[in-house]
Amino acid sequence: MNRRDIVKGLAALPLVAAFRPLEGVLASHPAKKRLIIDTHVETWNFDPRFPFKHPENPNLKVQIEAPIENQIGQMKDFGLKYGVLINPRYYGWDNSYMANCLKTYPKHFVAHGLLNPADPKIADNLRYWVKEHGFQGMRFSPIYHPKEKWLNSPAHYPLWKEAEKLGAVFNYYIVPHQMPMLEDMAERFPGVKIVIDHAGKPDLKAADCWPEFRKMFKLKRFPQVWISNSEPYEMSEIKTYPYTDTLPFYKAIYEEFGAKQIIWGTGYPRPRWELPMDKELEFVDKYCDFYSDEDRELILGKNALKIWKFPRKA
Rank of each mutant, 00 (worst) to 15 (best):
P180T: 04
P180K: 06
P180I: 13
V110N: 05
P176N: 08
W129Q: 03
P142S: 02
E162K: 12
Y172H: 08
F135N: 10
I174K: 00
H145Y: 14
K147T: 12
H133K: 11
K131L: 08
I174Y: 05
F140D: 11
V130D: 13
M185Y: 00
L115A: 13
A186Q: 00
N95S: 00
A186D: 05
L166E: 00
K103C: 03
M181E: 10
L115Y: 06
E164S: 07
A168R: 00
L115E: 09
V110D: 08
E183A: 10
P154Y: 06
H133E: 02
S153W: 03
Y128C: 05
M179C: 06
K131W: 01
E148H: 01
Q136K: 05
T104R: 09
L126N: 01
H145W: 14
C101S: 13
H108D: 15
K103F: 03
F135D: 10
Y128I: 14
F109M: 11
L126G: 02
K147H: 13
I143K: 09
E132R: 06
V130L: 13
Y144E: 10
K165M: 09
F140M: 05
F170P: 03
E148W: 04
M98H: 05
H145L: 12
G113H: 07
A123M: 00
T104A: 07
R139L: 12
A118C: 11
N125Y: 06
N171A: 13
L159H: 02
K103I: 06
K161H: 03
D94A: 04
G134Q: 10
K149C: 08
G134M: 12
M98K: 02
N152W: 11
M179N: 01
A155M: 14
A168C: 01
Y173W: 15
P117H: 07
A168G: 05
W150N: 02
N100V: 09
G167F: 14
L114S: 08
K121I: 04
M185I: 14
M179G: 00
E132L: 03
E162Y: 01
V110F: 06
M185R: 11
F135A: 07
R127V: 09
G167L: 12
W129S: 11
C101N: 03
E162H: 02
Q136N: 10
M181C: 02
K149T: 14
G137K: 10
W160V: 03
N125I: 03
Y172G: 00
F170A: 09
Y172E: 04
Y144H: 05
A155T: 15
N125K: 12
K147I: 10
Y157P: 01
